[in-house]
């Protein structure tokens, strides 16, 4: 099944590596965006199957993007996975409490990150 995944991260390097990792291991269509506000607009128009969302971003951070997606009827059912470098357990608990589908820590493994996403979202294919 040809899935569509939206990656939102202000770090251009992370976008390049993540896109390369997913495209090398799956047949998903990977859309990327380095701006939070633009990412919300793309999610509304493209209606991806999942959003991989960086937490620490300037101006509008990942939690605000997630809330914006939840508040919009067209995007509120799109599962969101946080990508974060926040390693402390307390920080992760706060993020989980927001209601996202899952959290993936940086640095991630390029070979297994797709499997990680599938497991979180319950995707069989």
């Amino acid at each position: 099944m040809n899935r569509k995944v939206l990656v939102i991260d202000d770090e251009e390097a992370i976008i390049i590596v993540l896109k390369a990792s997913l495209e090398a291991t799956t047949d998903w269509q990977v859309i990327t965006c380095s701006s939070a506000t633009k990412g919300i607009a793309i999610a509304t128009t493209e209606r991806p199957d999942a959003v991989l969302l960086d937490v620490s971003m300037p101006k509008v951070d990942g939690t605000q993007v997630f809330k914006a997606l939840q508040a919009e009827a067209l995007t509120q059912n799109i599962p969101v996975i946080f990508l974060t470098a926040k390693a402390r357990v307390s920080e992760q608990q706060i993020l989980k409490a927001l209601g996202v589908s899952g959290i993936i820590l940086k640095p991630f493994s390029p070979e297994t990150i797709a499997a990680q996403i599938k497991e979180i979202l319950g995707w069989k294919d």
Binding site: E11, A13, I14, I16, V17, L18, A20, S21, A24, S56, A85, K86, A87, R88, K106, P107, F108, S109, P110, E111
Partner: peptide, 17 residues
């Protein structure tokens, strides 16, 4: 942690691929 992990992710991911 954030400042170290971000470049580390790019280095690690890129080289590993």
């Amino acid at each position: 942690s954030h400042e170290l992990r971000t470049p580390l992710t790019a280095i690690h991911g890129g080289l590993h691929l």
